[in-house]
Every structure is written in structure tokens, then in C-alpha cells.
Nucleic acid binder design. Structure first.
Length: 596
RNA sequence: GCCUCGGUAGCUCAGUUGGAUAGAGCAACUGCCUUCUAAGCAGUAGGUCAUGGGUUCGAAUCCCGUCCGGGGUACCA
């Protein structure tokens, strides 16, 4: 049993025995002692004063004495200003080290029969343009939270809904038909998604010019926007597509294939993947059917113009349109269809949508609609709502080209890693292939850590020229510390030093103890990350651990330690730290290089 | 207007269910590579936790008001 829990219980019975008061368990505050104070674990005694009817000092002394007598691992105590600081035996911390050392499942709850099946939707790209920095945040969060939920004992299915139909695709299609001159990824050497994205931008340029022209001819802005030849042509393509026109559908398929092969490269580069992919073109009609079922079952209402609405005023929301008067579906209709298909395909206990916070209202409504339609997990679907990525220049707008392209960003960072490594004279002795792989790991480590270390709910600032650093609180710093530990372990192995689980040492330095304590916190960090859907918890934990390790590393020699027992202990401590930071970073999707 | 989220060092961010003297990194300045990898370590400087009130032993944290900012509130996706 964890020492915190034991102390909790002991405090409870102390209050009962000493003051005859049965306290509510969550009124006892047990926390780690501040670094600058003597002791390891602290109990806050203020809340007990009103029934001990004694001073804080006196109450603390009485409870402290009681606990020291009861718990073997609690060696001594001191009371300072209403805080009861307990000193825990070295044996306790070391015991925790030896049990976590080389334990592959340390901090992990393994799935079992009762495990919940969680489906996580993330990425959800449109097929008219390449992925950008905003998608990167989405993908990294989705992938990481999947692993974190797995580590918390859930079964997880990663899914992606590809928005592969609609007017935006038709815009790219029209532009390609009109100005494409037969350009393909093959004959242009361009990545498919970038090629299609180029035509999307091209469309917007022409469209804007046409609008300006029409306004000059005296049309109002609204009129011009709806009567520009380009948009009319794009709308016509959409109608043709919906009617199943062979030529249009073929073009649509062809261009989507280009985009998918481009996305595959980007996903692979980012190291994310999916267990099941849904396509909007296959779900939107299902959604429409579900809405019509809702009408038949009088869950929704159909107005005279035949548009369909959900009246959510009794849920504190507005009326929401589900089908337009011409019978076509809106954004939320396809989400209903996708939900229906997923519901048929899997026995989902919990559905998690990783989608930006601009859609909070959308998911609030979706939850209510799914519930009304009878999906058991609808009501408590979880919208993992993350904040936007902002640039110094403001918001990213793909149509205006003010985006940070995902592929470009990763490539640039790999180049920076390469340059930095050359400058520092690292990795000169290993093969070119291995070095390249390491640069890739470092670049992605930097990017992933930078994005995942911040609270997902908050907006974050990304300054392309300054943000990505390799020093300080960064992925590469953590990777570097790992590589150094690995180096020490390699050298000890070369000297035939074998780590022995039987630790015999007389005393611990404060740095050693800090590390030992920090190791006990890893399972708590994993749990908290799962409960809060926050990879940032893991990132910050890893950084603290690494920071602490570096201080220890700086103060203690390891390989030149003459005392055999000390050497054994320090190697085990180092190896355990390495394992934990690797586990933690892996939960963020970050790979750890053995050398750098 | 209404709903919603946020405001912590010059910049980017942490800050455990309310706890002790609010922490990191970057940028600036000072030291430390003959020593297990200096992508490191140690130190200096930098704060009215937007603001005004309230709750209490105790508030960056909880409640109310004000100011500033993001997002939403479409027969767009």
C-alpha cells in the first residue's frame, strides 16, 4: 500500500483516538513536503484545530507522535506553522525503486475483461488542402491521449473521419479542370495534397477577383459572392457529384487519391496512425436517414418548407437545422451518420472527439441529438476540446496562405537538428543512416514536446523562428539526458558491472532521495494525465524528473564510484530514470535515441 | 447583445482537491569542458498572479463586479 494512503488512514484513526472525531476522509490533506523543509510528506493540521481545540503546534505534535508509533516507515516528524512534516524511511523509497526497476508495466494499468472500449476520433482532415500546424496539434494530442488512455487500462480504437466531399473539394476540382493543364503529382513531382491545395488557393484567388469585378459592375457584395462564375461552376460540380455523374466522380476519386497518398506520408512522418477510417462520403447519407427516422419518430420536426429541425430549447439550447429545405445535409448531419456507423461497428463505451474548441457548441448539440436518437454513449461523449495554435501574425488561414505547412515544418526542423548536431560535433562516429534517424527523432521530439507540454485546453503561441528550441525545457533536452544515461549503462556493461536488485547502502544524498521520490510519482502522473486528458501532465513530469536527474548526475560520479554498493544503487537509479522517461515520452509519441 | 474560454517575469509556459517564501525555459549578465556526452550545471537580475471587492486560519486557485483578449451564436464546413 502506498505510504500516502497509510498516512491518510493513520491520520483518520489518530483524530478518532485523540479527539474522538470521525473526520470525512477527503478533509485530510496529505501532500509532498516542500523542498526547503525537513521531511518527505506533510499533513496540513489547520483543518483539525476546530475539534482538537488546541494550538496548531500542539495538535501537530500529538498526531505526529501517534503516526510515528503506528507506521514503521515513518521515522520522525516536525511541526512548522501548522504543517506536520513526516520523515519517511530510506528503505521505503528504495523498495519502490527496486520494484519499478526493469518493470515494463510500471505506471501502467493493464486492460482486462472489464476494460472500457474508448473510441477516439482525431485528425479529421478535409481533402482539399495539406495538413498544417493546427492539424499537427490535433494529431499529436489524439495520438498521445490514445496511448495515455491505454496506459490507464482502456481498450482504445483510433479513428479518423475524412471530410472527403462537399463544396470545398469541388472548388479544387473545378480549378484543376480549368487551369490544371493536366498536372498530376507524377508529372509535377509535387506531393498530392500540396498539389490539390494549390488549386484550392488558385480557386480562391480567381473567385475573389471575380467578386471584385462584379462589385465594380454594381452588384452588392452578397450578390457578387453568390453569382461569381467560379462558385456557380463549383456548385454545379457538387450537384453532379451528388447525382453520381461518372466523369465528376472519377475526377473526385482521382484527386482524393492524390491527397490520401500525401496524407499517408505526413501521418507516417508524424508517427500517427488509425485503426479505422471513415469517409464522410459514406456516412452523410446514413446521417440523413437517421434524421428522417427522427422525423418519423417525432424526435425532430419538419417545417412547411420541408427543412428539418431539432428543437433543443428544453435543453437550454436553440433550434438547430438538420436538413436544408432542399433536402441536403448540413455539417452535423454527417456526424450523426458517422456515429450510427460506429455504433454498428463497435461496442463503444465512450466516444472521444478530438476537435478544436471553436466547435464546443457543435458538440454540445451533437451530444443531445445522439442521446435523443438513442445512442447509449451519446449523452456523455467527450469533446476533447483543444485551443488554437496562433502565429505572431495572428490566426492561420489556409485560403490566404498564412499557414505553417506540416511537411515543411518537420523538414525544416530536421535540418536544424542536423546543423545543430554538426555544430556541436555530435554523432560523428555513427553511420549516416543512424545519424539521420536520430536527427528525425530529435526534430520530432522538439516539435511534439513543444506542442504537448502546454495545457491542451489553452490557445498556444507558435513563433516559427523562435519557438523550436533544443535547449532548456524541450524534447531534445530530455532525449539528451536519456542518451547520456544509456551511455553510462553501456560503459558499465562493458566493464562487466551487473546491476543487482539487492540494494545495500547506508545513506542517501538529498539529490538521490529527490529522484527516488520523483520515481514514485510516475504512476500518479499517468493517472492524472488520463483523468484530465492531458499529455502536458506527462511532459511536465518528465521534465521535472530529468531536471532532477541532471542535478544528481552533476553532483555524483557514477562509474568512478569506488564503493560497490553505491555504484550498484546509482546505476539502478539511473537505469530506472531512463526507463521512466522513455515510457513517459513514448506516451507523447516521442522516440528516444540511444545516442545523440 | 447573449453564451463560453482565457489574462501568472520582457517572451513562451508550469503551478496538485484552497496551504508554507508563486516556479521553469528563452532572452540578459557571471562562473564552470584535462573529469561518466557542456543539447549540461551553478549563480545574478526580472512578479501588485489584469483589476476592485468578498468568503477564511490561509486565495494565482473559490464567489461577485469591472477591464482586455480568443472562440461561438448561419439553410458554411
Amino acid at each position: 500500500m502506498k505510504i500516502e494512503n497509510l498516512i491518510h488512514k493513520a491520520t483518520e484513526s489518530a483524530l478518532l483516538d485523540l479527539y474522538n472525531f470521525k473526520i470525512d476522509e477527503n478533509q485530510i490533506q496529505v501532500q509532498n513536503t516542500r523542498k526547503d523543509q525537513e521531511g518527505d510528506i506533510t499533513i496540513v493540521v489547520f483543518p483539525f484545530l476546530r475539534f482538537s481545540k488546541k494550538s496548531a503546534e500542539e495538535t501537530g505534535n500529538e498526531i505526529g507522535g501517534y503516526i510515528v508509533n503506528r507506521l514503521q516507515d515513518v521515522e520522525s516528524f516536525s511541526v512548522i506553522k501548522g504543517f506536520l512534516n513526516l520523515k519517511i524511511s530510506n528503505e521505503y523509497w528504495i523498495e519502490n525503486l527496486t520494484s519499478s526497476y526493469s518493470n515494463a508495466d510500471y505506471g501502467v494499468i493493464l486492460p482486462c475483461e472489464k476494460s472500457k472500449l474508448v473510441m477516439i476520433e482525431y485528425s479529421s482532415p478535409n481533402t482539399n488542402k495539406p495538413l498544417h500546424l493546427g492539424h499537427i496539434r490535433n494529431n499529436l494530442l489524439g495520438y498521445s491521449i490514445s496511448d495515455i488512455l491505454k496506459a490507464n487500462g482502456n481498450k482504445v480504437i483510433k479513428t479518423n473521419i475524412v471530410n472527403d466531399r462537399g463544396i470545398h473539394i469541388c472548388k479544387s476540382m473545378y480549378a484543376w479542370q480549368k487551369w490544371g493543364e493536366g498536372k498530376t503529382p507524377e508529372n509535377s513531382g509535387m506531393k498530392g495534397d500540396h498539389l490539390v491545395g494549390e488549386f484550392y488557393v488558385e480557386f480562391d484567388k480567381k473567385y475573389k477577383a471575380e467578386i471584385a469585378e462584379l462589385i465594380r459592375k454594381g452588384l452588392s457584395k452578397e450578390e457578387a459572392e453568390s453569382k461569381a462564375p467560379s462558385i456557380l461552376a463549383a456548385r454545379e460540380l457538387l450537384l453532379k457529384w451528388e447525382a453520381g455523374d461518372a466523369e465528376t466522380v472519377n475526377l473526385w476519386k482521382k484527386m482524393n487519391e492524390w491527397v490520401y497518398s500525401g496524407f499517408d506520408v505526413t501521418y507516417k512522418k508524424l508517427g500517427v496512425d488509425f485503426d479505422k477510417i471513415y469517409y464522410e462520403s459514406e456516412t452523410y447519407l446514413v446521417g440523413k436517414e437517421e434524421v428522417l427516422r427522427g422525423v418519423r419518430e417525432k424526435i425532430f420536426i419538419q417545417k412547411e418548407d420541408s427543412s428539418v429541425w431539432a428543437d433543443l430549447t428544453s435543453d437550454g439550447l436553440d433550434q438547430k437545422i438538420l436538413l436544408r429545405s432542399d433536402g441536403t445535409s448540413v455539417y452535423i448531419t454527417q456526424d450523426i451518420g458517422t456515429a450510427k456507423m460506429r455504433y454498428n461497428d463497435y461496442e463503444i463505451d465512450k466516444m472521444v472527439y478530438v476537435v478544436g474548441n471553436e466547435q464546443n457548441y457543435h458538440f454540445q448539440i451533437l451530444a443531445v441529438l445522439l442521446d435523443k436518437l438513442g445512442f447509449s454513449w451519446g449523452k456523455d461523449l467527450y469533446h476533447f476540446s483543444y485551443g488554437m495554435v496562433e502565429l505572431p501574425s495572428g490566426k492561420m488561414k489556409s485560403r490566404e496562405g498564412t499557414v505553417v505547412d506540416a511537411d515543411d515544418l518537420v523538414d525544416e526542423m530536421i535540418q536544424v537538428a542536423r546543423d545543430m548536431s554538426a555544430e556541436l560535433g555530435k554523432l560523428e562516429s555513427i553511420s549516416k543512416e543512424d545519424a539521420e534517424d536520430t536527427f528525425r527523432m530529435i526534430a520530432l521530439g522538439a516539435l511534439k514536446y513543444f506542442i504537448l507540454k502546454v495545457d491542451p485546453r489553452k490557445n498556444m503561441m507558435f513563433n516559427p523562428s523562435e519557438s523550436i528550441d533544443f535547449n532548456g525545457n524541450t524534447g531534445p533536452f530530455i532525449q539528451y539526458t536519456y542518451a547520456r544515461i544509456k551511455s553510462v549503462l553501456r560503459k558499465s556493461a562493458e566493464n562487466n558491472i551487473i546491476i543487482n536488485k539487492n540494494v545495500k547502502i547506508n545513506s542517501l544524498s538529498s539529490k538521490e532521495k529527490d529522484l527516488l521520490k520523483r520515481i514514485t510519482l510516475y504512476p500518479i502522473a499517468v493517472k492524472e494525465a488520463g483523468e484530465n486528458y492531458s499529455p502536458a501532465v506527462i511532459a511536465n513530469y518528465c521534465y521535472d524528473l530529468v531536471k532532477e536527474f541532471n542535478q544528481f548526475y552533476h553532483e555524483h560520479s557514477i562509474l568512478s564510484e569506488p564503493n560497490e554498493h553505491q555504484l550498484n544503487f546509482r546505476l539502478m537509479l539511473s537505469a530506472t530514470v531512463a526507463e521512466i522517461i522513455k515510457k513517459g515520452m513514448n506516451l507523447l509519441g516521442i522516440e528516444m535515441p540511444e545516442r545523440m
